[in-house]
């Protein structure tokens, strides 16, 4: 599903060059659930951003579901993100003035699905997250765990092939963290959606099939859980 080889990424700020990724090779099969661990600044988030086509890589090859990701214009990148990828962020990143259902429906809005239809689908997904009765609440009326479940529903609604989660439990307490992980594992099992989870919590990483450890921009260890 994901096939990257020799990925390099350097950030240039003023006269400083920061070589963050120094040649990453990684193959992720469809339906795999993988966690990425590493110290802060090791490049794990950068890797995730490149995989999510939110950032571009300098060198190397990236194939997403067989499509070569290289020099894409923003329009194509947006289409690919919409079609293939679902994002779950640490800070949830819900749109503050849209209620839960509207937030979930957002990816379908960009696919030009009719409002009535996309809201009905959004309700379905919210129901699966056990948030049906919260559908018309604004994000600031929801708890952290609820927000993250809304975000997961939003990541799922576009029927992506890959879900990229950047510290999905970073802002949650341990009980809710486990609940969120339960949901993600379920989705991975039942819908066969490939999943990449960046985390620095060992017990979260343990719940995935494989853990990749990144140190200083290189993959140093792959552990099967």
């Amino acid at each position: 599903m994901i096939d990257i080889s020799n990925i390099h990424k350097t950030y240039i700020t003023g006269s400083n060059k920061l070589h963050v990724l120094k040649g990453i090779d990684l193959k992720v099969e469809a339906g795999e659930m993988i966690s990425v661990m590493g110290a802060s600044g090791s490049g794990k988030s950068t890797l995730l951003n490149i995989l999510g086509i939110l950032d571009n890589h300098d060198h190397g090859e990236y194939l997403l579901s067989g499509i070569r990701i290289e020099n894409l214009n923003e329009r194509k990148a947006a289409r690919l993100r919409n079609k293939y990828l679902g994002f779950v962020f640490q800070s949830f990143n819900l749109v503050s003035f849209k209620n839960a259902a509207e937030n979930v429906a957002l990816p379908l809005y960009y696919q030009n699905v009719k409002r009535k239809k996309r809201n009905a689908i959004a309700m379905e997904y919210l129901d699966r997250m056990g948030l049906k009765e919260w559908a018309h609440h604004l994000p600031n009326e929801l708890s952290g765990g609820q927000k993250q479940r809304v975000a997961i529903a939003r990541a799922l609604i576009g029927k992506p092939k890959v879900i990229l989660a950047d510290e999905p439990t970073g802002a949650l307490d341990s009980v809710t963290s486990q609940e969120v992980m339960d949901i993600l594992t379920d989705i991975n099992k039942n819908e066969n959606i490939t999943m990449l989870i960046v985390t620095h919590e060992l017990d979260i990483a343990k719940r995935t099939q494989k853990t990749i450890r990144i140190t200083d921009g290189l993959i140093t260890e792959i552990i099967k859980n």
Partner: peptide, 13 residues
Amino acid sequence: KEIGIQRALGATP
């Protein structure tokens, strides 16, 4: 940031 979220979710330029 909000525009960033929208673009991550597939909003074209």
